[in-house]
């Protein structure tokens, strides 16, 4: 173990920090935008003279929670457990939105792809609702971003309460949410979405001095009956378009997109008019 250099000065701490920040910058430029594909790496560097308490302070002040640290002396078990906990938290963070506790956009995209395939393979319905808070910018501008965050947390809570256990709720943008409803067609998903919308409209939030703050949401929903294989955008864009329609109709409402696949394409089993005519007339 390199114990020959024992630098405990602030200079040393600053040097390590500067190195990490420079590395972070370089990594941000180099790392693949798609973490699910391509190589993975762990980078290690011994930091002689740095105590664990110092590291904790650095990590807290400079948002280094993705960097894992382990002392090189003493029993490793407590630190290994800490690393394990950090990894668990990171795994959770990679799928969840830290503000609302809902799933994040990346997790939503993965689940949407899987559910689309399931719907088509099993011939079952899948509905996708996209919800957007009405006039959220006004709340942020009038009451501040902390208040806006408070509203988003509450709306996340409504979604979790109102959805069925196995529906999938995600925050996919600033004030935009998605709800995936496996097995539900348009008519039945409407019941769940209306429950969400009225739950949101029923919220009374106290942000700072503003007591009883209200908010509404608009929603668009699209549905596949699982009769033909469809692509992500075949479901997402109609839901988004329906949301746009809900906004332009005056907000605080739900608009349903026309069914993507009401029937299968004309099948090889369909009895055609020419066949019927032949059976009836013999020509």
């Amino acid at each position: 173990m390199p114990e020959s250099i024992d630098l405990e000065s602030d200079d040393n701490r600053d040097a390590i920090l500067a190195e990490i920040l420079a590395l972070r910058q370089a990594l941000a430029e180099r790392m693949n935008a798609d973490p699910d594909h391509g190589p993975d790496m762990v980078i290690m560097r011994p930091c002689p003279g740095l105590a664990l308490e110092d590291w904790n302070e650095l990590a807290r002040d400079h948002d280094l929670r993705e960097w894992l640290a382990m002392p090189m002396r003493g029993h490793p078990l407590p630190y290994l457990k800490r690393i394990q906990k950090t990894l668990r938290e990171l795994a959770h963070l990679s799928e969840h939105d830290h503000l609302t506790g809902l799933f994040n956009r990346a997790a939503f995209e993965r689940t949407l792809a899987a559910e689309l395939e399931r719907a088509c393979r099993n011939g079952t319905s899948l509905s996708l609702a996209i919800l957007d808070l009405d006039d959220f910018k006004v709340i942020n501008d009038t009451h501040g971003h902390l208040c806006g965050d408070e509203v988003l947390r509450h709306v996340g809570g409504v979604l979790i309460e109102a959805k069925r256990t196995y529906d999938f709720a995600a925050r996919i943008g600033g004030e935009e949410f998605a709800l995936l409803l496996p097995g539900l067609g348009l008519t039945r998903s409407e019941i769940v979405i209306r429950r969400v919308l009225s739950g949101v409209a029923g919220l009374r939030m106290d942000c700072g001095r503003e007591l009883g703050l209200r908010v509404t949401a608009s929603a668009g929903v699209a549905c596949t009956k699982g009769k033909i294989p469809i692509k992500r955008d075949d479901l997402f864009l109609p839901a988004d378009q329906a949301l746009y329609e809900a906004k332009s109709q005056g907000k605080n409402r739900l608009v349903k997109a026309p069914l993507v696949d009401l029937t299968r394409p004309a099948e090889k089993t369909l009895v055609g008019a020419d066949e019927k005519k032949f059976l009836f007339t013999g020509s």
Binding site: E267, K268, T269, V271, E275, K276, L279, F280
Partner: peptide, 17 residues
């Protein structure tokens, strides 16, 4: 005739599927 077309439909579906 209706029995004939319905029977034909059975044949068509069974043979295709």
């Amino acid at each position: 005739p209706t029995s004939l077309t319905d029977g034909y439909a059975v044949i068509k579906v069974l043979s295709a599927q």
